[in-house]
Design a protein around this nucleic acid. Structure first.
Lengths: 208, 208
DNA sequence: ACCTGAACACCGTTCAAGT
DNA sequence: ACCTGAACACCGTTCAAGT
């Protein structure tokens, strides 16, 4: 067992990324070590350094592959309320699919490179449709993105609410979207409240 | 140099916590190691374990001492909008005083113990004054707390906005509070928009 | 009671040596 | 070209031994 101690193939980067992503998803980013990753791949730890520059670069890479998996809904005809809600749900789906790595990305400044690419191309037009003036657009987008990010981080950490059933989480997310829709409407198109429809219909009735 | 290799006193827990907090503030939580901490205290690494159960317990403790330093403003007579804004600013001040540890607390589920104690005693009455019905109170509080948390985490990580000047950060935080105030008003006391005053007066005029 | 050295089981990474 | 063992500088923590 000299050149080919490993079973079969010659260790592709894709294989490394996939296994690393699995380890992180199972045990958090702190559960990923080069030595454990090598063990999971049935390989000498040092072999990894032939395909990956460093542990940091590896984490960067799997953050990127995660970001690419954001499935942005296309709803060209729909009113902005529906589109914003759908975008929020898509974003939430990514976060719950990769809870550990997603939280990690959003709390580590050095990973700005992994900003969700296509997200803003869809997000900004929605805010324009909501009546946000151009000179407030970027700031509003940043704030709303931070709001949703914060909610998702808190939900994943169980830092929130006594009731942590999936239904309660869903309700809380809807409450958050509702608050955002109402805030946007009140600030930027107060006349349109009755006519919009989507926001009011989708808001779950409060049990009384 | 046997019993008293260390200069002077017999190593109090307070001294340990203070130094640990300083190290974390200077280099992030990942820069805190028992060995470095011992070096900073001019002590043998193993001596620490006589005063502290483990590194985890130590971090728990300094999170608690940070949480205790939240200076909650008392503004009993003021309208809820002003009180909410002041509370937001107090919270932000804590976050910016301990950026690394604050982010750490809010992304580590096991530290729920460090939830800001008196915060909720002030927060919930404000939301009641804003007209949030009792059966939505906790959920709304959680959502708003998560919103602000998300904004602060993002601001500290530079994950937000191209302009990172202090003024731009301030503006963004005000935008966030404004959005929250407008959302609350629209949802729970739509008639009171003109009369409230505080929210509208405090909102900075958009440069046109 | 308080401290400490050696030791154990982990890390990430370098580098010279192997095929 | 690709892999690898030994080694280095770090970790947190245990434990028996010191004063």
């Amino acid at each position: 067992m000299a050149a080919g101690a490993r079973r079969g193939s010659p260790l592709t980067p894709e294989e490394i990324y996939a296994t690393a992503l699995r380890l992180v998803n199972e045990g958090g980013v702190e559960a990923l070590s080069m030595r454990k990753l090598a063990a999971a791949l049935d390989v000498n730890p040092m072999s990894l350094y032939h395909h990956v520059e460093s542990k940091t670069a590896l984490i960067d890479q799997i953050c990127l592959t995660m970001a690419e998996r954001l499935e942005i809904p296309v709803m060209d005809g729909a009113p902005w309320q529906e589109r914003l809600r759908a975008l929020g749900h898509a974003y939430r789906r990514l976060a719950t699919t990769y809870p550990a790595l997603w939280s990690y990305v959003h709390t580590h400044p050095e990973l700005v490179a992994a900003r969700e690419g296509g997200l803003w191309d869809v997000f900004l037009p929605i805010l324009r449709a909501a009546g946000v003036p151009e000179d407030e657009l970027l700031r509003t987008a940043d704030v709303l993105h931070a709001f949703v990010t914060g909610l998702l981080i808190n939900q994943q950490n169980g830092h929130i609410g006594s009731d942590r059933s999936p239904e309660a989480m869903d309700r809380m997310f809807e409450t958050a979207i509702d608050l955002i829709l109402d805030g946007l409407t009140a600030r930027h198109s107060p006349a349109g409240r009755a006519g919009g429809g989507a926001a009011d219909e989708a808001r779950p009735a409060a049990p009384r």
